[in-house]
Amino acid sequence: NNRHKVSPGAGEHPLQYNYTFWFSRRTPSRPSSSQSYEQNIRQIGTVASVEQFWRFYSHLIRPGDLSGHSDFHLFKEGIKPMWEDECNRGGGKWIIRLRKGLASRFWENMILAMVGEQFMVGEEICGAVVSVRFQEDILSIWNRTSNDQTTTSRIRDTLRRVLNLPSNTIMEYKTHNDSLR
C-alpha cells in the first residue's frame, strides 16, 4: 500500500511524522452516537513536510471563522481521531476552553508545536483538536497513555509555554475512559 504513501517533495523539510487533517460538523438532527460521529468526520488530507503542511493549512478556513458545531482534527497518519482507535484507547487529552476570538491563533500555535515535535514525549502524542462551539471554543491534545504522569505533565507544561497561557488558565485532563462514560 506504499504506492499511496505521502512523502516530502524534493527540497522540502520532512516532518517527524505524517499528519492527517480531518473535519467534522455535527448535524443537529442526528444523535451523537459513535456511529454517527464516524459518519460525520471526513479525512481532508495528509502532509509529510513543513511545506506540505503550510500549503494545506493555508487553504483551510480558520477555526475562528467557522460557525456552528465543528471540529478540525490533526492526527498522526494512521490514528483515527476517535476514542475507539487502538492508539487512543488507553489515552486521554488535555482540554483548554477559550473565549471566542482566540481559537485561530491558539490552534495554529498548538499544531505548530505538535508537527515541530516540541512536546518531547516520544511517541505519546496522537493528535490535536479544535472544537468550535456556540459560547466558547475548545482546544485539546490527545496522548496515548493517560496514566503516565510524567508525560501528561510535560504535555501540559509545553502547552502553557507554546500558547503563552496566563498562569490562571484552567487546563483539564480527561481520560478517554471518562469521556466514554
Binding site: H13, Q16, V50, E51, R55, L112, V115, G116, E117, Q118
Partner: peptide, 21 residues
C-alpha cells in the same frame, strides 16, 4: 533515532519561503 524538531520561528519562515508556494 534522531528526532526532527522545528521551532515555531523556523516553521513560520518556511511558510514564506519560495518552495512552500
Amino acid at each position: 533515532g534522531t528526532r526532527i524538531i522545528y521551532d515555531r520561528k523556523f516553521l513560520l519562515e518556511c511558510r514564506s519561503s519560495p518552495v512552500a508556494k
